[in-house]
């Protein structure tokens, strides 16, 4: 939302400059657009990377797809009309890139797949200790491992919805906009994903 406001403010300044002083040149417009875009990159790069990393569990691939996402966004920045937030728009691009990647990987089954994706055990090691005791830390790690395990078993859509909701903390409307699904469908996917996570955790109890 902040980005939208920034974009609107910048555009208003441009219009004011154009009407009061002299017609805005193409170079000025491009410069303003570049500034807007670089601020968007700075603000959302980590979030996009985090979502892709959680989806793929592969640092190199997440970095590559993040770069592709911003490259694509840069190419289409002029066509972004601000109907949704910049983050939602970027997230939509990232989701499509991720889909394309899985599709290509399914087609190119003979290709040697990268082995840099980590398993649930390794991923669950990343947990800030905070003020927890060693026992609590171990328990938390075990929980995270189980959640990773169940996330790996989710369908592509369920996983996307689950990560957007519980890692990126987006609301249903934002998730629906980013995925292109209706809010009802998002709710259904989320419910199924949560059911699977609960079942996984419940089996451990």
């Amino acid at each position: 939302m902040t980005v939208n406001l920034q974009r609107t403010r910048a555009s208003t300044q441009v219009m004011a400059a154009g009407s009061a002083l002299e017609p805005m040149t193409m170079a000025t417009a491009e410069e303003i657009a570049a500034q807007e875009f670089s601020s968007v990159v700075e603000k959302h790069r980590l979030q996009i990377f985090r979502f892709l990393l959680a989806s793929m569990r592969d640092v190199d691939l997440a970095e590559t797809l993040t770069q592709e996402c911003f490259l694509k966004a840069h190419r289409n920045w002029r066509s972004f009309r601000g109907e949704s937030s910049a983050l939602t728009w970027l997230m939509r691009i990232a989701i499509n890139l991720q889909k394309d990647h899985w599709r290509n990987r399914r087609i190119q089954f003979w290709r040697h797949t990268q082995t840099s994706s980590v398993d649930a055990d390794e991923a669950s090691e990343w947990l800030p200790s905070g003020e927890r005791s060693a026992e609590q830390q171990l328990l938390a790690q075990e929980q995270v491992k189980l959640v990773w395990k169940s996330v790996a078993g989710l369908s592509e859509r369920q996983r996307t919805v689950f990560l957007l909701r519980y890692v990126e903390e987006q609301d249903l409307k934002e998730i629906a906009q980013a995925t292109g699904l209706s809010e009802g469908t998002v709710k259904a996917h989320l419910s199924r994903a949560l059911g699977k996570v609960r079942a996984e955790l419940g089996g451990e109890r």
Binding site: L46, F49, R50, L53, A54, V59, A62, A123, S124, W126, L127, P128, A140, Q143, V144, L146, V147, W148, L163, R165, Y166, V167, E169, L190, S191, L194, V197, R198, L201, R205
Partner: peptide, 29 residues
């Protein structure tokens, strides 16, 4: 978002999961 999952353990697990993903992504980033 926990109307369907009132379980405290589930809530705790999801919080830990979120913290773990954030820590991992920041370190990798």
């Amino acid at each position: 978002g926990f109307e369907d999952a009132p379980d405290l353990m589930l809530e705790q697990a999801l919080k830990n999961f979120r913290a773990s993903v954030h820590a991992w992504s920041e370190a990798a980033y």
